[in-house]
């Protein structure tokens, strides 16, 4: 009985839906504000993202005639569910996540792909040429960044010798952050580049380039369904940042400063915010690439970095 209550609280309140949406929306708000300042304008208030999602949720739910299908309606929810589930596998307060399994990294990689696949399904079933084009680009982009992302994670797994994220964090608590290990440094860079593509940020915001294909796969979505997409996107931001923090930057650690104990959650928030701000900076100093250029970039430069890292980890003791 207790386990069931725990699970419900975990998935709905902390670190699940409620916590993830609050932090995710807040981070995207910070991202927008910082972007504004970088572009020499004031930018929206930090809480703007809450207002936007709230406004969309309160709007009428319209499905265009050509898009009337079960798939079109269900994919936003599936995507949100998948991404909130990843939150349960992430170490948020301590090395121990809310849910554990023997090889949770494989589950995380799998679950992180579901939103991308949902976007494609939504785009293809929307009956709009922009949706189809956006979905097509999304497929290509998925095949670009996913390989790099998985290779970077394999490098970490080879270094630590475990597929469990909790073990990776424990390992770093004893041996120091993996980003400080020179053999894994190329993998860190590759993972950051892959995350930029996963989160659809410039220069890899190709699947939803608004000046080319309106809003890509999500063109026909509006109202509450679009709000759920936004929520899923925003939570994905913190999930990917949290995963990177756990893999390379030591994960949530408790510190004792002046006799008071700082809980791991604070460390988690600081680290994820730093990663989000790094991604924000990257997206503001570049132009968008074309899809073929992005594919080439990932499979040549980024993949090479990840492979070098993997080879170094395996070859150099």
């Amino acid at each position: 009985m207790m386990e069931v209550v725990n699970f419900v609280i975990n998935s709905l309140v902390f670190p699940g839906l409620l916590f993830a949406s609050l932090v995710g929306l807040f981070y995207v708000g910070i991202d927008r504000k910082v972007t504004g300042h970088m572009q020499h304008r004031i930018g929206p208030p930090i809480w703007q993202e809450y207002l936007d999602v709230g406004k969309l949720l309160s709007k009428e739910d319209i499905t265009p005639g050509a898009a009337q299908s079960f798939i079109f309606n269900i994919v936003p929810l599936v995507s949100l569910g998948a991404i909130v589930t990843v939150m349960l596998f992430l170490p948020v307060t301590s090395a121990q996540p809310a849910l554990t399994s023997v090889a949770d990294l494989i589950v995380i990689i799998y679950l992180l792909n579901i939103p991308a696949i949902c976007v494609m399904l939504g785009g293809y079933s929307s009956g709009s040429p922009f949706g189809a084009l956006g979905a097509g680009r999304h497929v290509v982009q998925l095949f670009s960044y996913e390989f790099v992302f998985i290779l970077a994670i394999i490098a970490v797994v080879a270094r630590v010798g475990s597929l469990s994220l909790g073990t990776v964090v424990d390992f770093q608590a004893q041996q120091g952050w993996l980003v400080l290990d020179w053999r894994l440094l190329p993998a860190v860079i590759a993972a950051l580049i892959a995350a930029q593509g996963k989160l659809l940020r410039v220069p890899f915001d190709i699947p939803e380039a608004e000046s080319e294909i309106v809003h890509g796969a999500l063109t026909e979505y509006s109202g509450p369904k679009l709000a759920i997409w936004r929520l899923a996107y925003d939570i994905e931001t913190i999930v990917v940042a949290g995963l990177l923090a756990a893999l390379f930057f030591g994960g949530p650690t408790t510190y004792v400063i002046g006799g008071t104990q700082i809980p791991g959650i604070v460390d988690f928030l600081i680290k994820t915010l730093a990663i989000v701000l790094l991604a924000t900076t990257l997206r503001n100093i570049m132009a968008r690439l074309r899809i073929d250029q992005a594919l080439k970039f990932y499979w040549s430069f980024a993949a090479l970095l990840a492979i070098i890292s993997l080879v170094l980890v395996l070859a150099v003791p």
Binding site: Q39, P203, S211
Partner: peptide, 8 residues
């Protein structure tokens, strides 16, 4: 070309 900073 998606370079909003230069735009601003």
């Amino acid at each position: 070309i998606g370079f909003n900073t230069l735009f601003m």
